[in-house]
Design a protein around this nucleic acid. Sequence first.
DNA 1: AGTGAAACGTAAAGATA
DNA 2: TATCTTTACGTTTCACT
Lengths: 157, 157
Amino acid sequence: MTAKRDLDVFDLKLLSEVQKNAQLSQGELGAKVNLSAAAVNRRLKRLADEGIIKKYVAVIAPEALGYALNIVAQVEVERERIDLLDAMKKVFEACPQVQQCYWVTGEWDFVLMLAVRDMEQYNELTRQMFFKNNNVKRFKTLVVLKHVKSGLEVPID
Amino acid sequence: MTAKRDLDVFDLKLLSEVQKNAQLSQGELGAKVNLSAAAVNRRLKRLADEGIIKKYVAVIAPEALGYALNIVAQVEVERERIDLLDAMKKVFEACPQVQQCYWVTGEWDFVLMLAVRDMEQYNELTRQMFFKNNNVKRFKTLVVLKHVKSGLEVPID
DNA sequence: AGTGAAACGTAAAGATA
DNA sequence: TATCTTTACGTTTCACT
């Protein structure tokens, strides 16, 4: 998260590759982008040091762990007092079943993506996070029928 | 995606670690879960072979590439004919700015998470994907003010 | 032309699988 | 033990004097 440098075409190609697949060796990456393994190593290290590569993670199949159900929940709050909002964010953030939570403008205040075992677990979570919280004015549930696309890949032009 | 085996406590701990940080060496992972590096190696390989670990990826800071704006778009379709839906899915899937797309029940048919450079790019995308498509009945835009939480981590009990 | 910074490739050393 | 990563070293390029 340090300097603001311009990324050249090698950096962009490397980022494009590793955000799709971080398992290639630096030698293999080098072959793809026309650089030596050492150059790849230096560039990846630099990109990580600068915070451009935030982390490396394994992506797990949720079904394998019994988390086959995804739900989009939209939440409107009663009052937009900053301390109340912060308290809600903390609750959402701390809940392992909340994979993603966005604070948004528009008709709703929060959009959450949840991964749950089943409807019963979702009902329980709504009780905990929504009904119990008297700053939640209303919420709406959208059940995911199918993942058309899911990832965190950033477009690289 | 082969066998359906029961995951033991070591597997679960390993999955929990690598989905947060896939950069630890197998030796370091072993120290965390009380296993030898070789055992960690065998287990990770097996988890990958079984499709439980789907892939390893680098997570990139979108701002570093000029993608500082996220938008949740909700779409309702005109007709739920399967061929029309499939055509829409293909369009959403193929668009690099669409990070995630879910087919859902309820008030809307699709929920999309977009990463765009600016509002202008979003407007352009709505023209391409929504206005041009006469199976899109209506859509609603929620602009993300803040990422409270974002990831693909599966809860591990 | 001369100097310094940045980045490369090769190759050896060190760490990991 | 084989492979991959990291570092050291000498070389190239380029911007600026």
